[in-house]
């Protein structure tokens, strides 16, 4: 595999955004995700390879650590920053269809809830895994999910809630979506959620961390 892409994977996993970023301290002065992605494109590495062998490997490294309790929310947020700068360079190739994506994924925090950090981490992991993520933001009403689903009829839906008071909105939203599109897969996540709750409201599954979820999605699609 390309040495440059290995470096990119490390930059993503460690959250090295660009050369001038002081974090992490032991990578001071080295190229970050920004420069490495640009360089790879300049050296005519295929965008799909940059995604698969660079970003995705980096995401998997930090995601595995998160899953095993060796990395935490801040590590994920820092990796997300590095990921976002790399994506800026790759976006034109996704938009043009040059890089084939795994599918569409509609994501949002349910109505009445404004928490978005957990949802943003899911977005990053799925984007890094080659999904076209349509992020509807926070306080997303059932109708907004349904409207967006019309535009992306084969999309998978992901919902987040962080409040015990708003998790009930997941049931309302799931019921509304399943009514118009029974085959659409709906996954839920957030601190107060459990698999039992997912079963109870008729969703297709709950995942406690984004890495496990990405693996599951890869196995069903």
């Amino acid at each position: 595999m390309n040495e440059l892409l290995n470096k990119l994977a490390v930059a993503i996993a460690r959250g090295k955004v660009n050369q001038k970023s002081p974090f992490p301290p032991d990578m001071k002065g080295e190229f970050g995700a920004d420069e490495l992605t640009k360089q790879a494109l300049e050296e005519s590495v295929a965008p799909a390879a940059i995604l698969n062998d660079g970003l995705m490997i980096g995401m998997k490294t930090v995601g595995d650590k998160f899953e095993s309790g060796k990395a935490f929310i801040p590590d994920m947020l820092i990796a997300a920053k590095a990921m976002n700068v790399a994506m800026v360079h790759l976006k034109p190739f996704f938009d043009s269809g040059e890089v084939e994506l795994k599918g569409d994924f509609i994501l949002g925090t349910v109505a009445g809830d404004l928490h978005d950090i957990g949802k943003n981490i899911v977005r990053m992991v799925l984007t890094g895994n080659g999904w076209n993520v349509i992020d509807l933001g926070t306080d997303v009403k059932p109708e907004q999910f349904i409207e967006t689903l019309k535009e992306y009829p084969n999309a998978v839906i992901g919902m987040s809630a962080l409040l015990t008071t708003t998790m009930m909105q997941m049931e309302t939203t799931t019921t509304a979506i399943k009514e118009v599109s029974p085959d659409t897969k709906i996954y839920i996540g957030g601190a107060p959620i459990s698999q039992e709750f997912s079963d109870k409201i008729g969703a297709d599954g709950y995942f406690p961390d984004p890495n496990k979820f990405a693996k599951h999605l890869a196995s069903v699609v």
Binding site: F23, I78, L114, D116, T138
Partner: peptide, 15 residues
Amino acid sequence: DSDENFQDIFVNKMF
């Protein structure tokens, strides 16, 4: 939560 710069500033201030 609804400030668009929150996450960016938040991550910077964690260091």
